[in-house]
């Protein structure tokens, strides 16, 4: 097993970590950096619970090798501080068990950055990447629209 010592930019901090080439970004940020906000839900790119942002775009961190993240800016839920979308999730009861929430918020956060004027179709296209099993999605829709409309 070959170990690579690499430099990662995560939440605007530089981290030097030793990883195997086969380690996924999810595995590394959770296991090596203790950033457990990104959740494993399927490890197969299907559920979105592990979504982080890479260079401002949503990324299922179970689908990315850690070594692929070298030279990129990774943001995890722990890197968000009192953003409007977090507050909107709270106010709109847009989560129940909370397990899908970090992934959903990171996807919403990226959407707000990339398409602050997103229409219903764009919102749907983006947010259908994540599964929430507790809410009805209406709460999440309200939360994301409350932030998009403000912009």
């Amino acid at each position: 097993m070959q170990s690579h010592t690499i430099t990662l930019n995560i939440n605007e901090e530089i981290h030097i970590v030793a990883v195997k080439a086969a380690d996924t970004l999810l595995y590394t940020i959770r296991g090596k950096l203790g950033l457990t906000g990104a959740k494993p839900g399927c490890l197969n790119g299907d559920c979105g619970a592990c979504t982080v942002n890479v260079d401002g775009w949503p990324m299922k961190s179970c689908l990315m090798l850690t070594v692929e993240a070298v030279g990129k800016k990774v943001t995890t839920i722990e890197g968000l501080r009192e953003t409007p979308i977090q507050q909107a999730f709270v106010e709109n009861f847009a989560f129940q068990c909370g397990y899908c929430t970090p992934g959903f918020i990171m996807n919403c956060h990226s959407l707000i950055q990339q398409h602050p004027d997103a229409d219903d179709q764009t919102i749907k296209e983006w947010l259908e990447s994540n599964i929430c099993r507790c809410t009805s999605y209406i709460e999440i829709e309200k939360a994301v629209k409350s932030v998009l409309n403000k912009k």
Partner: peptide
């Protein structure tokens, strides 16, 4: 292409 997988996955 926009009908393949889902939006986040299509970023990869």
């Amino acid at each position: 292409a926009s009908q393949v997988a889902d939006h986040s996955a299509r970023g990869k």
